[in-house]
């Protein structure tokens, strides 16, 4: 596939749409959380204001080069993850750079931002940042195992690692979604998804109030603004990934919005109901419940 100027324009369009969607999703989800708690809650556009506010801060301090480029790593990771996936199935415009690599690339590219962020946070010199990173990495290793097995099961099922082909195989009615054709892999991946989203009960990484807010403790002003942009794009990109893998992808933006919103609600629902796990608890949990299900999925695919 040729790499042309139009791809950059398409990519910018995708990033713009997903960024707005991510911000609104954030606002709405917090609104819903407030309503569940019988509060009025924030305005749905509060995330926009917060970001503008942070960019409007007049002063910045820097702890060094890595501190400075950590948000860059983070946002690059988020945007890259988004752009390496076909966002809308069948649309050339929104397939973006998915010709550069397959599912494996997407899975591993998630860590680009994580690693960069961890480095920058550590350069900040704040011990709480380092504690947050320690917890975060520990948890990542735990939920990656069922995720990997689940992904292998799916790749085995469709005999491909190409995300577009995986989505294509799920077309033709919701019964051909992976959700129904490979329920165990779906369950395992959706459990891992909880960890990947970093919401309660797996939010000990940020753990507000306990270790201020973990890795980003030292980030502020525009640097924090970049991280906030990523907090809109990165979860949205992950939602799109799981939608593509498990729920038949999307052929249009409305379909994408509905599906990703519902997927997101799964983690919101769990997060509202369950309190926070300690790291060792969450590691054990991931390596018991989702892993067992993932193993069942593999066994079913193999035999």
């Amino acid at each position: 596939m040729d790499f042309g100027f139009k791809h950059i324009l398409y990519a910018l369009l995708t990033v713009f749409i997903v960024l707005n969607y991510g911000l609104i999703l954030q606002g709405i989800v917090r609104k819903i959380g407030a309503r569940v708690g019988r509060r009025y809650g924030i305005r749905w556009y509060q995330p926009y204001i917060d970001i503008i506010k942070n960019y409007a801060k007049r002063s910045t301090i820097t702890h060094g080069v890595m501190f400075y480029i950590a948000p860059v790593f983070r946002l690059t990771g988020g945007i890259g993850l988004l752009l390496f996936m076909p966002v809308i199935f069948g649309s050339e415009i929104f397939s973006n750079f998915s010709f550069a690599g397959d599912l494996v690339l997407v899975l591993y590219f998630q860590f680009f931002g994580v690693l960069g962020m961890a480095l920058g946070a550590a350069e900040g010199g704040h011990p709480y940042s380092a504690i947050g990173v320690s917890r975060g990495l520990s948890q990542v290793t735990a939920f990656e195992l069922p995720l990997t097995l689940g992904v292998l099961a799916i790749a085995m099922q469709y005999q491909t690692l190409n995300i577009t082909e995986i989505v294509a195989a799920q077309q033709g009615g919701f019964l051909s979604w992976t959700l129904f054709t490979n329920p165990f892999a779906t369950i395992a991946i959706m459990f891992s998804f909880l960890g990947a989203m970093g919401r309660s009960p797996f939010d000990v990484v940020l753990a507000p109030q306990e270790i201020p807010i973990g890795p980003p403790t030292e980030f502020h002003s525009g640097l924090l603004g970049v991280l906030q942009l990523n907090r809109a794009i990165f979860p949205a990109a992950k939602l799109i990934l799981f939608m593509n893998l498990l729920f038949g992808g999307a052929t249009s933006w409305p379909e994408l919005v509905v599906k990703t919103f519902l997927i997101y609600m799964w983690s919101v629902f769990v997060g509202t109901v369950f309190p926070r796990f300690r790291v060792d608890q969450s590691v054990r949990w991931f390596l018991v419940v989702p892993l067992t299900i993932a193993i069942i999925a593999i066994i079913l695919i193999r035999f």
Partner: peptide, 27 residues
């Protein structure tokens, strides 16, 4: 099963990185 283009990935990631970095640096 799949495909992978290391060179394009390098360009894309480098491109995004440079843009974001330049912007942040300017800010």
């Amino acid at each position: 099963f799949g495909y992978w283009n290391g060179q394009v990935i390098m360009y894309i990631v480098g491109g995004i990185f440079v843009v974001v970095f330049a912007w942040l640096w300017y800010m």
